[in-house]
Design a protein around this nucleic acid. Structure first.
Lengths: 140, 140
DNA sequence: GTTATCCTTGACGTCAACGTCAAAAGAATT
DNA sequence: AATTCTTTTGACGTTGACGTCAAGGATAAC
């Protein structure tokens, strides 16, 4: 342990199998994401090493997928989290995209709230019917 | 207008093109959904007529898609809204599925809240950088 | 009657997001 | 040195969710 690297996991790198376990995806998926420029693992020889940046990106990728975004949509947004090394014009574009995405996500959250309310009501109706049909309330 | 049908749009039926416009999808999509048993239009001759039930289902389908669910997942849940004509055991299963889906959606809403917060923060950072680089604050 | 318009059923094509398999290269273990 | 394990790079396969013709029936308009 070097005296400089007090933040032990800051500069830690992962092999591909470690990443697989970390994010519960296949190696194929990670290579695929690299080919699509969502990840940028460095190389030791010909092997991939995934850095903290890649871990952060993967987290965002999984999140984005959960919310129903396509990989391409996610890729564009990922630049928002690495804007240091881009040109101003590109950052501006990504920023605009981020604003759109934000409002889309806020909208989705609102809709989700309504859908949840509906589903709850429907489940209640369903439950009532089941009880009326003589179901045991313990297995509901 | 029949004296019995006071609820004018309750028993209204739509042709396929009407449905297309109503939900902004293609006819192919509607036929595809029927083939996958997500919709059950009645027939006049060989033509499809979409009922109120189908309209309700379509609303739920679009919603489900927005939230990232697959058509198969959506199909299973749709039974929750038409449980009148099913057997108790099946309803019970659908009910259980609904509970799972509910908690999944609630989880998703929570994650969405966090992601929105993160994105906002990131956008702020981005904005600061752009301003520092001399961007005009009016086009942000 | 025929032209035009909707609608139908196949059947094949496409695109995203991977899965799967083969061949080979490197490192590690015995 | 031989074997095992991890990983690599192709390359082809698959699945979900449709798109896109092609060929034909039904109905309304002229």
């Amino acid at each position: 342990m070097n005296i400089i690297s007090t933040k032990s996991n800051e500069d830690k790198v992962n092999t591909i199998t470690e990443m697989c376990k970390l994010f519960k995806v296949s190696a194929r998926t990670l290579r695929f994401y690299e080919s699509k420029e969502l990840l940028f693992p460095i190389r030791r020889g010909q092997n991939r090493l995934f850095t903290k940046s890649d871990r952060g990106r993967m987290k965002l990728i999984m999140q984005g997928k959960r919310f129903g975004f396509s990989l391409e949509e996610i890729r564009q947004l990922l630049n928002l989290y690495n804007f240091g090394d881009h040109r101003t014009r590109q950052i501006k574009q990504t920023y605009q995209l981020g604003l759109k995405r934000l409002s889309s996500m806020e909208q989705q959250k609102k809709e989700l709230g309504v859908a949840i309310k509906d589903l709850k009501a429907q489940l209640q109706l369903c439950k009532d019917l089941l009880l009326k049909r003589g179901a045991d309330s313990r297995d509901l």
